[in-house]
């Protein structure tokens, strides 16, 4: 009975295979050997904060709500800058003769309805969606958002209604009311497009909270860009739309540069892994690429391409930010580092 333990290729291979099976057995990664709770790694690398439970509906809503809001803002801008309220300065190239203002309103309304549907479907208890309106809570961006969306939806609905009436009944008061309503929906829309940044920022997720000033800007900027792009894709080759597109693509490029320059332990998900890739692709799509295409401008197909890229990039960026939030929550180092630089409240 001698004890033999001379490893050879076959035994090593078997060992490796067994190890692999063993680690698969539980489907979850184990604590690394000799890993010990520490100030740097926390409790065996376990997350400190919980990752968002939101599914695809929420980032989609961020994008759709932003487009809807900015579409309304565009409708308002059109209404307040041209003589007629609903007729835009430009009609569609597809030639149906529908004014851009009107289309923008319809886009806003469709967006508002879609947004509501998306939000309801993300609830754990969809039947209780009306509970959102039990109270107004200033500390909860979601409460504000729920009210915003409600008000916005109502205003846009009325705006569409009034827009339809304005053609028929040529009454003076209708026009005036219409301009007021569309102004209101425009203002609400502007907030609808930017508050989602606040919604993410006012959380404990390091990568979100640490970008609390940037997120409203970023979500805000990409929304009029997307709304404009949608309208362009619907056939409105308005110079104004292109101007908006150019401007926001330029701003997005600056943001991208800024983000690339500011790296911290807690911004890892913006650079690494799948979320980092998404963020960067989205950034290139909405920033430099859209800007370049629009800057060249001719043939018009380039502008359409810019529009497509911009909308894609903007939707992708919402997904990317939510994904980055999830990654960020999982990483205890992000929480620790971010909190360490956070000055203590007096």
């Amino acid at each position: 009975m001698s004890r033999e333990r001379k490893p050879d290729a076959a035994s090593e291979a078997r060992l490796l295979e067994l190890r692999r099976q063993a680690s698969e057995g539980s489907g979850e990664s184990h604590t690394p050997p000799e890993s010990r709770p520490s100030v740097t790694d926390g409790y065996y690398g376990q997350p400190v904060v919980k990752a968002p439970v939101w599914t695809w509906e929420v980032p989609t809503y961020f994008a759709v709500g932003g487009i809807a809001g900015m579409a309304a803002a565009i409708a308002a801008a059109v209404a307040w800058t041209s003589s007629t309220s609903v007729e835009g300065s430009v009609t569609s190239s597809i030639g149906v003769g529908i004014g851009i203002g009107w289309t923008a309103r319809v886009v806003a309304l469709v967006g508002a309805v879609l947004s509501g549907a998306l939000l309801v479907s993300d609830l754990g208890r969809p039947s209780r969606f009306l509970y959102m309106l039990r109270i107004v809570k200033l500390s909860s961006p979601m409460s504000i958002g729920a009210w915003l969306l409600t008000v916005f939806g109502a205003l846009v609905g009325v705006a569409v209604l009034l827009g339809g009436m304005a053609d028929a009944a040529d009454a003076e008061w209708v026009g005036r009311l219409d301009r007021l309503v569309i102004a209101g929906s425009g203002l609400a829309g502007l907030m609808l497009a930017t508050y989602t940044g606040v919604l993410l920022a006012a959380t404990v997720i390091p990568v979100w909270a640490s970008h609390r000033a940037l997120l409203p800007v970023h979500f805000g900027l990409s929304s009029p860009g997307s709304a404009a792009a949608v309208l362009e894709l619907l056939g409105y080759h308005d110079l104004a739309l292109n101007r908006v597109g150019l401007l926001v693509a330029f701003a997005e490029t600056l943001l991208l540069l800024w983000m690339e320059m500011h790296t911290h332990a807690w911004t890892k998900p913006l650079r690494d892994g799948s979320s980092g890739l998404q963020i960067r692709v989205a950034g290139v799509l909405t920033g430099p690429l859209a800007l370049a295409l629009r800057a060249v401008g001719q043939p018009p197909i380039l502008r359409l391409a810019a529009a497509v890229f911009f909308v894609t990039g903007s939707v992708l960026s919402r997904f990317a930010w939510v994904a980055a939030g999830r990654e960020s929550a999982k990483d205890p180092r992000a929480t620790f580092e971010w909190q360490r630089v956070w000055e203590k409240r007096s």
Binding site: V78, L187, M191, A201, T203, R212, L247
Partner: peptide
Amino acid sequence: IVPSMHLKVAWTSALLTAAALGIVLLGAF
């Protein structure tokens, strides 16, 4: 850090962005 610590900055940013964008849109059209 509780979420409300970020409200002021984030809402300010949101309002300014909204205002700026409003002006941009008005301007553009």
